[in-house]
């Protein structure tokens, strides 16, 4: 396992992610924004691949690109009465920009002062097999808890989004 990653794919994927994020915020159409979000998700999945996290890239594609995007599009569809409603004002605001910039300055200052420690990389890159083994042995409890969380969220979502007749 090398101790760094190639710069060319990183730059391409990073540009895709940042550009997609910016487009998502700056587009007027909610449906377009949802597709830009999808594009960011896929770029992040690519970055996961670059970071030798194949399994995460997979669930990133399945959960975000698959499920969440569809969910978002459905919600947009259900809450818009006319086609024109998808076009919205940009809602830009100075204060939010200033705050986001401030957070970025703070984060950037922290990153700038960050010195990466020397780490001995393992000879073999741990893959999906190691991930799965750890998930079902030493991390079985959080795994089960996560399933309970999902179940509760499922029930809650059905309850909230359910019919008017209760």
């Amino acid at each position: 396992m090398p101790d760094s990653v190639a710069v060319v794919p990183f730059v391409i994927l990073a540009a895709l992610a940042v550009g997609g994020g910016a487009m998502m915020v700056l587009t007027r159409n909610v449906v377009h924004a949802a597709f830009w979000l999808l594009e960011v998700m896929m770029a992040v999945a690519g970055l996961f691949m670059l970071l030798s996290a194949g399994f995460l890239a997979l669930i990133q594609m399945m959960v975000y690109a698959g499920a969440v995007s569809v969910l978002v599009l459905f919600t947009v569809m259900l809450t818009l009465r006319r086609r024109e409603d998808a076009e919205r004002s940009l809602d830009l605001s100075w204060s939010a920009g200033l705050i986001a910039l401030g957070v970025f300055v703070a984060v950037g200052a922290a990153i700038a002062s960050f010195v990466p420690p020397a780490v001995v990389a393992p000879a073999v890159t741990p893959g999906v097999a190691e991930f799965g083994r750890a998930l079902f042995t030493e991390r079985a409890l959080p795994f089960e808890i996560a399933s309970v969380v999902l179940l509760i969220a499922l029930v809650g979502a059905v309850w909230w989004a359910g019919g008017d007749d209760r």
Partner: peptide, 10 residues
């Protein structure tokens, strides 16, 4: 300052 801008923006 930020608060004032928040107020302005809102």
């Amino acid at each position: 300052v930020v608060g004032a801008i928040v107020v302005r923006g809102a």
